[in-house]
Design a protein around this nucleic acid. Structure first.
Lengths: 136, 136
DNA sequence: CGGTATCCAGCTTGATACTG
DNA sequence: CAGTATCAAGCTGGATACCG
């Protein structure tokens, strides 16, 4: 997210020029807004196994609508994360696959997943404690 | 996101029991839904510098409303990412700070930030190319 | 100071229908 | 098959007012 490498830090201890942070300041939003939405993560998980056609992706993703899948794929394609190949047969076939850029996301995503996996119990405890505090 | 360590993989090459993925299957959403929203990232960036009181955070975050900040802080608190301390003076003072759990998020976030930083030009090229394809 | 309550506009979402 | 079009419903987010 807006975590910066120590030496490229434009935020930090009040040394940001304006002394305030704006949404636009945060380069990570470039990624998060586009990738961390409801479906992108799962689409990528499915496509990681190999190229798939539209309806094949749809079948592997329980509950996604045609519209949502189209939107998700378009956004991923626009950001260079997946590529789209039209195969001119009849009826038409369209194949999607993860690009090299998309594959390079695997390492950071894995780090995030591992954090979640490791700290899930702690997060759940925190939620329980909070919910109890705010009911009793 | 839904990237799994190789050996804990419940998705993978069609070996998922149901052979379909549901939103609930993806443990990463636990984190992403709650942290990757519009403001959480920036709130954490500000709080990383040290504990701050409500209105001090608000002043450092250009454009955030009182309501949005309250909601963001509550969600972060519920997930154990920040903690809230009421200082019983008059008028009342409330201090927020990042917890140990919250601090442990720094590494995965840094990985993500570094990816963004490194691949920004490529993403921007992809967007330009896409936008040209879809206008001409 | 640090909130909560209320109201309302706008964006997103899903269901449905239609098309090359 | 792989979409686009359309429309209603719902949730989110901002503005405003008030409270302990």
């Amino acid at each position: 997210m807006s975590v910066q490498p120590e030496n490229a830090n434009t935020y930090g201890k009040g040394i940001c020029p304006k002394d305030v942070l704006t949404l636009a300041d945060c380069p990570s939003r470039l990624l998060l807004d586009q990738i961390a939405d409801k479906w992108s993560v799962l689409v990528l998980a499915v496509l990681k196994e190999g190229p798939l056609r539209f309806n094949m992706i749809k079948r592997r993703l329980e509950g996604i609508t045609q519209k949502a899948l189209t939107q998700t794929l378009r956004r991923l394609e626009r950001n260079g994360i997946v590529s789209r190949h039209v195969i001119p047969v009849s009826p038409i076939a369209v194949e999607y696959q993860v690009t090299a850029l998309g594959k390079s996301l695997d390492q950071p995503f894995r780090a995030l997943y591992e954090w979640t996996f490791l700290h899930l119990p702690e997060v759940e405890r925190a939620r329980q404690a909070f919910d109890e505090r705010h009911s009793g």
